[in-house]
Design a binder for these strands. Structure first.
Length: 713
RNA sequence: GGCGAGGUAGCUCAGGUGGUUAGAGCACAGGAUUCAUAACCCUGAGGUCGGGAGUUCAAGUCUCCUCCUCGCUACCA
């Protein structure tokens, strides 16, 4: 298809924290490179993004900090927007979902589907906080984790042991808003029948995108489609979000996953009156850049929504990247294990392109990748600086020394084979880079650019114009060779600026200034030409494009990471001001139902009386046997010597301990917990565990060996 | 447990439809050089392609089994 327009989106970052370099590498940088390339091709392109400002975690953060949700999103929207701007992520618009136009757009979208009878209405029982007069999403319910005993587990998941939970399972459930005990109440929601679009999706993706989409994206989609789709609620009981535009929907908002992708549309509307050209005409190429955690939403749910609405183009491609780890470990925002973009900008002022280079050269395009500061240093010093920066510098210095600071003539009648080969290589570099970019192979594309500089270095070395200048007796003949060599090196440098521009725009601009050419030279159509710089044209004096990264800087950054980690784990979790626990380059929501990853403020449990406490029968027991439960990842079946009896307890600790390592350990058991069947095994009690800040589980046991069965109080 | 994506030189990655001595960049070693950010240029060493079995004249590339990493999902209470 011959596309007339390009609409490029980058996942909406969740306005609950700053962005880190994983976000950049996974999503925003590739999107920006692609966009800049398309612009250089003079194609009609719009690059839209914005902050995703709805959802439960933001309301929770607001409560925690004693401010309004709007305050929260205002704060992070500003930080995020600034980080992107400073890094040169060249959105045509960076909008936000709290804007009026977004509310209107997403409501209109909902209304259209509603009027067309797309939704299924369903009533269900949901938890409700009577003191606050509000329905509670699972996330809003806090209680003690039945598995690890964490007192601040959420109704959907325990952050400490990773168990996924439902509110019913929590011990001492309470509302995160008021500490009231939640009650059940009927509520109505509107479900999008994804199942009805299953066949269509299969045809569109499984058949239609087989050889087009990346393996990781395609595979994930196929996996979902093969396992069958279910209707999904598109509304929530909440006050923070886009109100459901129906008369009987007071206190209900659009599910953040419904409204967020529509944010792409609203942002485009905000950008241009011609928005429908980009969204509604078949000859528009729509490309979503996201991280791997958002594949399902962008490849399945949103397209189904668009299809149901009708009149919209569907994504041509969704080149999702994997995750970027830091120094061998997964990014963790609660542990503050991340490299934050706003901090990088402070620590390395003017070094945006160094980071862009490394993140692109090491982008997690086909699998999770690792970012280390040592590697950052190596790549900047040994590739970017030594090969590309050095070549450019050599060309400038030699031109000034041997050609009086002016572009020497080419003497095209005197070209030798090596010259002609180089000219061909310059042309080839354009084609190679172009092919990579068109196919979302950004790291390969960047390699091709560096490779051209590499060829320049070799050419320069082979000609050694500095040597030619040392034999005055051959002056005339040699100067001709020097001219040709330097002329081509300078033209090659101009070409480098063009090819580099999508990847390293700051550098490309610097090069333009030094060559005293207008920015228009960077138009892609000029790549491959060797007449970009006019003969006899004077160029500016040499200056370095890149500086080296010192060992001390690397050491400092690594230490900073370790210190952050220490702080985050030694103090309470709520000191973290960073984004959701999410290594994803995208935060437009997560695949877990009620979104959100940010820990709730530990709200102390309500005061209890000694009588309440005495209801719990805590006893000491010794693990006699331990074996992993079949076909369950987390469960270990324990046999405990309780003094007077042997008890079977099933415990969700298999991710933390090997069965053989815990035999003989003495533990504290909640002995009068109601029996419960798990995987067909009846569990009679629960063993007490504490969880360390680093996530390790620790047995809560008597310090010295006690008699089995004795009571603990 | 199921599904998906990966596991190829120290590091990061290439390796359509199976076919000569498995490639690249960086790191490393030796050499050459001095125009240049001790940079560049040349040469070299480095891999039983996660492991095992099979199909084949021939497998990194196909089949089966198995181990490890990441993600989704199930189980979990």
């Amino acid at each position: 298809m011959d596309y007339k327009r390009y609409l490029i989106t980058a996942a909406l970052p969740y306005a609950n924290g700053p962005v880190h370099i994983g976000h950049l590498a996974g999503c925003y940088l590739p999107a920006d490179i692609y966009t800049r390339y398309q612009r250089a091709q003079k194609r009609d392109v719009k690059f839209v993004c914005g902050s995703d400002e709805h959802g439960v975690p933001i309301t929770i953060r607001a409560m925690k900090e004693g401010i309004t949700p709007q305050d929260v999103v205002d704060k992070y929207h500003a930080i995020i927007k600034d980080s992107f701007k400073e890094m040169g992520i060249s959105f045509d618009i960076y909008s936000r979902t709290s804007n009026k136009i977004h509310h209107e757009t997403s409501q209109a979208f909902f209304t259209k589907l509603f009027n067309d009878g797309v939704f299924e209405e369903r009533e269900s029982e949901q938890y409700y906080d009577e003191s606050k007069d509000i329905f509670l999403a699972d996330r809003y319910i806090v209680g003690t984790c039945p598995i690890c005993g964490n007192e601040n587990a959420y109704g959907d998941q325990c952050e400490k042991c990773g168990s996924s939970l439902s509110p019913e399972q929590l011990l001492n459930p309470r509302s995160a808003l008021s500490s009231a005990v939640p009650v059940k109440k009927r509520t109505k929601h509107w479900y999008f029948p994804l199942d009805k679009y299953e066949e269509w999706l299969k045809e569109w993706i499984v058949v239609g995108k087989k050889d087009e989409w990346k393996a990781n994206v395609y595979g994930q989609c196929k996996s979902w489609l093969d396992s069958g789709l279910q209707p999904r609620a598109m509304t929530r009981d909440s006050t923070w979000g886009v109100p459901v535009p129906l008369p009987d929907a007071k206190g209900k908002v659009l599910y953040v996953w419904f409204d967020a992708p529509i944010g792409y549309i609203s942002a485009t509307k905000e950008l241009t009156n011609q928005w429908s050209d980009y969204w509604c005409r078949e000859d528009t190429k729509l490309v979503h850049f996201i991280g791997k955690d958002n594949i399902v939403f962008h490849c399945i749910i949103f397209p189904a929504m668009l299809k149901a609405h009708g009149g919209f183009v569907l994504p041509d491609n969704v080149p999702a990247n994997e995750f970027l780890n830091i120094e061998g470990e997964k990014v963790s925002t609660s542990r503050n294990w991340a490299v934050w973009v706003d901090e990088y900008l402070k620590d390395f002022p003017g070094q945006q392109d160094a980071l862009r280079y490394v993140l692109c050269a090491n982008a997690p395009e086909s699998k999770d990748n690792d970012f280390t500061w040592k590697d950052f240093q190596d790549r900047v010093n040994n590739e970017l600086s030594a090969i590309l920066g050095n070549f450019e510098n050599r060309a400038f210095v030699l031109m000034h020394k041997l050609c009086k600071g002016r572009v020497p003539p080419l003497h095209s009648d005197a070209l030798n084979d090596a010259d002609k080969t180089l000219i061909q290589e310059i042309k080839n570099a354009r084609v190679k880079t172009e092919t990579c970019l068109e196919n979302y192979k950004f790291r390969d594309g960047l390699f091709e650019v560096i490779d051209l500089a590499r060829k320049g270095n070799k050419y320069l070395q082979d000609n050694a114009p500095w040597s030619l200048a040392k034999t005055p007796e051959l002056q005339i003949e040699n100067q001709k060779r020097i001219d040709i060599c330097m002329h081509l090196c300078l033209q090659l440098t101009a070409n480098l600026a063009i090819l580099l521009n999508p990847f390293l725009p700051f550098t490309a601009n610097k090069m333009c200034k030094k060559m005293k050419v207008v920015e228009r030279m960077l138009d892609w159509e000029n790549a491959g030409r060797i007449d970009l710089l006019k003969t006899n044209y004077p160029l500016l004096a040499p200056s370095l494009l890149f500086r080296k990264i010192e060992d001390a800087e690397v050491a400092a950054q690594v230490e900073k990471l370790r210190n952050n980690l220490k702080q985050a784990t030694s103090t309470k979790m709520d000191t973290s001001t960073k984004a959701p626990e999410n290594t994803a380059p995208v935060t437009i929501g997560t695949t877990t139902e009620p979104i959100a990853d940010q820990p709730v403020i530990p709200i102390g449990k309500p005061v209890i009386t000694i009588d309440d406490f005495m209801k719990i029968d805590l006893r000491v027991g010794t693990i006699l046997k331990a074996e992993k439960v079949e076909k369950a990842d987390k469960l270990i079946r324990l046999e405990l010597d309780m003094g007077t009896e042997i008890r079977t307890v099933v415990s969700g600790i298999a991710l933390h301990f090997k069965p053989e390592d815990i035999i003989g350990k003495q533990v504290t058991v909640v002995a009068n917990l109601a029996p419960r069947k798990m995987k067909g095994i009846e569990s009679n009690g629960m063993i007490l565990m504490a969880q360390n800040g680093d996530g390790r589980l620790i047995f809560v046991s008597p310090l010295e060996t006690a008699d089995n069965g004795i009571e603990v109080r």
